[in-house]
Design a protein around this nucleic acid. Structure first.
Lengths: 188, 188
DNA sequence: GTCTATAGCATGATAGAC
DNA sequence: GTCTATCATGCTATAGAC
């Protein structure tokens, strides 16, 4: 064969990785297949050797995004006691607000996910519940799991819709202080 | 003239009102001019008698949305002391999560606004700052203004990306309890 | 596995009839 | 002021050459 065994797999992975960033930056519906393919040096027609439809790519993309984010944010048995507040401080950063392409998929594509198929939303829900349980257990507060997730996503959305850098900083700083006030001292 | 003096004004207002709901439900970029016009019984070509471009409609739409929301949420001198917690309870409702077309534009179109022109984002910022100042003053807590706004927007986004009604309720209930814990007793 | 070419349709926007 | 018709362009998806 003209192409190696793993060539298709590699191309698929490159397309997936590249599309994740592009979709989070410019929106998924708004971005055409041609743009996604040319970003990895291929033409639009070749897309359908890798995915049956654009919606299929979206489903895999969201699945991958939520898995990676949840793995990072939830932490494991080796994570320190202040794991959650560390992750939150990192989430509520100016860098995150200014770089949606590297950031959380919920803050960047939340409304598009809300309009997606039940299958996609069920996948997202499963990952979110895992993350919520992890945080609720660590903080010993059932409500704090969901509430802190909402705080994070909402603050980044707000920080991105305003124009001035100053207001963006204010929103993030207020949100960080608010979260710290709520958390117990021994978890900081 | 074949049409009354106020006919154009009325049509423009109808188009604006109709488009607000459609955009919040299905996304603005995703919805075509034809769909927006046929929703008020007109054809696509007539759109450009009322707006110079689709982007112009978006700007006016966002302006109107943020004004109306801010007026409602900020309250005035006649509002009761528990104004803020009442509005937040209302915002964090299942009805709001299930009806984006009637709800907050930030939760529905946040990422699209984030990609909009600096002019649009500056308008949104002005309204958000007015709302933030109002809440911060009422609660006598500078951080709470931005933080509670973020909590509201984030909770609705989360509630909309999950599939099961049960999880949606959990998210909203946790967020409501979290907000109540934080607020002072005399403001409830 | 990727290419070009193309089908079929929707888009944003314009021109001219009424 | 709204209509139909139209343009140019974009889209998703398919077929067939290489």
């Amino acid at each position: 064969m003209r192409y190696s065994n793993t060539h298709k797999q590699e191309t698929r992975q490159k397309l997936l990785d590249s599309s994740r960033a592009i979709a989070k930056k410019g929106g998924f519906d708004t971005t055409g297949v041609d743009a996604l393919m040319s970003a990895i040096g291929l033409t639009g027609g070749a897309f359908y050797s890798h995915f049956r439809s654009k919606a299929d790519l979206f489903a895999e993309l969201i699945q991958l995004e939520t898995e990676l984010s949840t793995d990072m944010l939830a932490g494991d048995d080796n994570s320190p006691p202040d794991h959650v507040s560390k992750r939150i401080r990192n989430y509520l950063s100016t860098y995150h607000a200014l770089h949606p392409e590297e950031g959380c998929v919920l803050a960047a594509l939340g409304p598009e996910i809300a309009r997606a198929s039940p299958q996609v939303k069920a996948q997202v829900e499963a990952m979110l519940k895992r993350l919520q349980r992890s945080w609720a257990t660590r903080l010993d507060d059932n409500d704090a799991g969901w509430a802190l997730l909402a705080q994070c996503v909402g603050a980044i959305v707000l920080a991105r819709v305003v124009e001035s850098e100053r207001t963006r900083q204010e929103i993030l700083a207020s949100s960080r202080r608010f979260v710290e006030k709520v958390q117990q001292p021994d978890q900081k």
